[in-house]
Amino acid sequence: MNRFLLITTVASVAGLAACATRTVDAQWSSPQLANTPLQGAKVLVVCEAPEEVLGRICLDKLAAELRTRGLTPVLRPDTAPPPATQARDDSRYLPEARAAGARAVWVASVGPEANYASNSSGSGLSIGFGGFSFGRSTSVGLGVSVPVGGTTANTVYAADTRVSDVGNGLLLWTARSGSPPSGDTRVQIEALLQRLVDAAGSAKVF
């Protein structure tokens, strides 16, 4: 009975966590945004990721989503995140954006958020939650496990998106989204970026 209750509880936590990450987790808009929508604007697109492949997937998807909404993306090829010892500072991209004639800098930081292991035989479950960060921050973790036979490990990804005005460097809009666990990394990243761009549209960023 105790084993059954533990498995049921852990499975419920996993289900709630997955559902909670299917939408944008949080977003913020500047009062200035109402006066400076980016309709039809050229924007410098930046993707910060711990691995090159993640950065390239991010650039391709984010650029495609912005094009469909009438914006003109200019891609920054370097996808390396800033050093962990440095605070987040998107002003570093402003000179490049101005040189490209962009009105805004659109930055997406993408990285792994948690590890999820599911039992393929249905006899148990093992879950590990971690954290991802860019700049100065801390992370916490929670691990729950039940002895099982074979398991399939998946990684949950998250993205933090920021849009800044090139003229004055002020942050216009920012949002964060996570993705339900999946064995397909590309599907996860593309889905969460689409949700973020959809949220930007709802917030009248463009």
Rank of each mutant, 00 (worst) to 15 (best):
I57Y: 03
A117G: 06
G128A: 15
Q86V: 06
S179N: 04
V13K: 02
T68N: 09
T72C: 01
L62Q: 06
V205P: 00
L193K: 04
C19S: 15
R88V: 15
L192P: 03
K204H: 11
A26G: 11
F206A: 00
V110P: 12
E51F: 10
R103H: 03
T21E: 14
F129P: 08
L33Y: 01
R67E: 05
V105T: 12
G124D: 06
A99R: 10
V105M: 09
P147M: 08
F129N: 08
Q188M: 01
C47Y: 02
T155F: 03
A102D: 12
K42V: 08
S30F: 08
C19H: 09
L59S: 08
R69H: 00
D90V: 05
R88T: 10
G167N: 09
P73C: 06
E48F: 08
C58R: 02
D60L: 14
P95N: 08
R22P: 01
L59V: 10
G111L: 02
S118V: 14
N115I: 12
A203Q: 00
C47S: 12
I189S: 00
R195K: 04
D160S: 15
T185H: 00
S177L: 02
D90T: 13
P112A: 13
T151Y: 06
S29Y: 02
G143F: 09
L172D: 05
V156S: 12
V148E: 07
R3T: 14
R103G: 12
R186W: 00
G167P: 01
G130L: 04
G131M: 03
G149S: 12
A64P: 00
R67H: 02
K61I: 01
S145M: 07
